[in-house]
Design a protein around this nucleic acid. Structure first.
Lengths: 333, 333
DNA sequence: TTGTAGGCGTTATCAG
DNA sequence: CTGATAACGCCTACAA
């Protein structure tokens, strides 16, 4: 029983009914006789009939496909989002086209084009930055929800997290532990997440009466290598910072490597706090304290919003909280 | 310039040519006059025309979509595969529908059904196990390539890795370092990867004249919790193993947590070797030695094979090598 | 309740 | 080289 090539006509023929009747039965139209129902369904399973989604959506103008465009699924944070979004989509009978933009506007644009020609029903997008293509997408009536980041000047429903609470707690914790020189490894200021976290950090320093020292503020690109480099610069300062705060998990990972490479002990010599509660941080030695955001919730929520946009709603953007998770006490079992 | 609703007829009308000519120009058919070419392309961009992939593939019976079904993108190993596969697909002008089976045959089957009705051009699949649906997929003429795992009795092109070399090197390393009691945390024996790695481990022990002690052999389900449990059992043995070998990265992570939770030092008290070269292992303290397989190569290769199957080829299955990466010297900087 | 027919947007065939 | 025209597989008025 091959699943390809057999059309609804074949089913109708085998069931001895017309094409219309077969279609009605298969699409659950109540205007069908019990007799027709049994004969058609029987014929369908016998032939291994499988509706052609292309043909169906050509008529209905709905594909039941969502586009999911993230930076890179190899980043555990986005992997969590992608997994949650995919599962939420599946629950609502949607499948997800996955795109990795690789922190690259051109690949983002390529996928936007593709999603458009594929006629996906909506797009969940972690924008890499503004572009003519992105602008075109947003003016195209295509339902879109931003995740993780926003882009200035684009009025789109989004799911983001509020860095302030988590960052403030983290800084409070460090200050309470006696830290005064806290190195910051930030993300690109062209990305909203990068800006927000930086602003939250500065605000927290002020709130806790710590002088803002520009030489302690560095910026990377949210990728690993930039974290190792930033940490190298920070640790080379004449007066070394006693703690490091990294604006995402990858740069934190890079910083950890630098610290260890220089023979320093994480926790004892240099405290480290990372954004993103990646599973691995908890299982490292010592465990790494984090500013946690619930990536799964972010992904699920994004799909929820998107489904509402698709339904014609205009949902409010959602801002999920962050919280500081202190693991400094749990060090070296 | 909305990107939706405008069809090729509109383009033709605006360009003052027939529908056929517009189609030919837009699909690069050489049988077109320069004049027609310029007018049509101009009209197309002016109107923001975007071909409808549904309609196109309804005619051409090719969707330029691949199905990519893995266990869970949150597992870094599969994230690497998914990323590489997606990029390779993109290079060949395909997009990828992502499915997470969650180590669950029913979700696997659900996605198989979906891929079929979506008429994807081919499927890259990390099979969760045999099922009637999987069998149906394989008899359906749908091009399929297995990644990472195989299923007995199914003759499908696959990309897997050969555990033997890496495992043998790892065991050799341990034996040379004086280890005789090596605990093994294996995967499910229902999955080919689980079986192969177990067999490779036993063979390696024999080859290196180490007695096979069944109490040192445990099995998990390739997920984290099962790794912590297995490690607990192993470390509770009256004569504790001095080294642990885990058959995937998640179970290794669990084992590491157990070891540390018991106040033992990784490396010094219990040596740990993990399958899968996850980035984090390299940056842990101490770095974890691994039996590495190139997940990116696996993903790329799978798509390559799949494209050849789609093209009508019958490519040979590919077995990529594994290799042991010793990081024990690099401990505690 | 059922059958027939038109059309969704494309591509491909066939005359001109 | 171009213009009609017929599918592709499905859904859905419209008639019967």
């Amino acid at each position: 029983m091959p699943a390809t090539g057999v059309t609804i006509r074949d089913v109708a023929a085998r069931a001895g009914v017309s094409l219309g009747t077969a279609s009605r039965v298969l699409s659950g139209n109540p205007a069908t006789s019990p007799d027709a129902r049994t004969r058609v369904t029987e014929a369908a399973t016998a032939l291994g009939y499988r509706p052609n989604a292309q043909a169906r959506s050509l008529r209905s103008t709905r594909t039941h496909v969502l586009g999911l465009l993230v930076s890179d699924v190899r980043n555990p944070f986005f992997a969590d989002i992608a997994h949650a979004a995919e599962q939420a989509a599946l629950d609502a009978d949607y499948v997800s086209l996955l795109g990795n933009a690789n922190e690259n506007v051109e690949q983002q644009d390529r996928y936007i084009e593709t999603f458009l020609t594929q006629r996906v029903d909506g797009v969940v997008l972690a924008p890499q930055g503004p572009s003519a293509t992105l602008e075109m997408l947003l003016t195209s009536r295509m339902p879109v929800v931003f995740v993780d980041r926003k882009v200035d000047g684009f009025d789109v429903a989004s799911v983001t997290t509020d860095s302030r609470h988590g960052v403030d707690e983290a800084v409070a914790h460090l200050v309470a532990a006696g830290h005064r020189r806290i190195g910051y490894i930030g993300g690109p200021q062209s990305i909203s997440t990068g800006r927000d976290r930086h602003d939250a950090f500065i605000a927290a320093l002020r709130r806790h009466d710590v002088a803002v020292d520009q030489e302690l503020i560095t910026f990377g690109d949210f990728r690993l290598a930039s974290g190792t480099e930033a940490a190298e610069r920070l640790l080379a300062l004449s007066e070394r910072p006693t703690a490091l705060l990294a604006a995402d998990n990858l740069m934190a990972e890079g910083a950890l490597t630098t610290i260890r490479g220089q023979g320093l002990r994480v926790g004892a010599d240099v405290e480290v706090i990372a954004f993103d509660d990646i599973e691995w941080f908890e299982h490292m030695d010592p465990p790494i304290s984090v500013i946690a955001q619930d990536a799964g919730a972010v992904g699920r929520c994004a799909v929820e919003l998107l489904l509402r946009v698709i339904a014609g709603d205009e949902p409010e953007s959602v801002v999920l909280p962050t919280k500081f998770i202190d693991r400094s006490g749990a060090s070296r079992g």
